[in-house]
């Protein structure tokens, strides 16, 4: 699973979101490291919908513009769970290795 897909799934896990809200949520979740282009966002959404991990929700008109909401399916929740478990295992392994070298796992941000 790509980082972009992971972040979109995470954004949708909280509540159904429309496209622009997904872009903003991904930017916040990644602390500004990932800024989704519209073309990229829809590539990810198409694949998620095709794989049954996300689906269309309601539609709204906001300031004369169409907003279509997307939500996670049960399969999407399970896929996110599995990915979180995989990444957590990796983090635990890396943390143990670093601790063995006497280095702390998280570098100071200051």
């Amino acid at each position: 699973m790509s980082e972009q897909t992971f972040l979109v799934l995470t954004a949708l896990a909280e509540e159904p979101l429309h496209g622009y809200a997904i872009v903003q949520a991904v930017e916040q979740l990644s602390e500004g490291r990932t800024v989704l282009r519209v073309g990229t966002l829809y590539g990810v959404l198409d694949r998620l919908v095709a794989d049954g991990l996300a689906e269309r929700d309601r539609e709204e008109v906001h300031q004369g513009r169409l907003r279509r909401y997307y939500k996670l399916t049960d399969s999407g929740v399970r896929a996110l769970q599995a990915e979180v478990a995989r990444l957590s295992a990796n983090v635990r392994a890396a943390t143990a290795v670093l601790r063995g070298r006497g280095v702390q796992a998280w570098a100071s941000r200051a």
Binding site: V38, G39, T40, G43, D46, A50
Partner: peptide, 22 residues
């Protein structure tokens, strides 16, 4: 440019039916 490149990429994916389950 970045947005244009992303849309061109999406064009390739959609013309070649990547979102075939849509």
């Amino acid at each position: 440019w970045g947005e244009t490149a992303a849309i061109l990429g999406l064009a390739v994916r959609t013309h070649l039916a990547a979102g075939a389950a849509l």
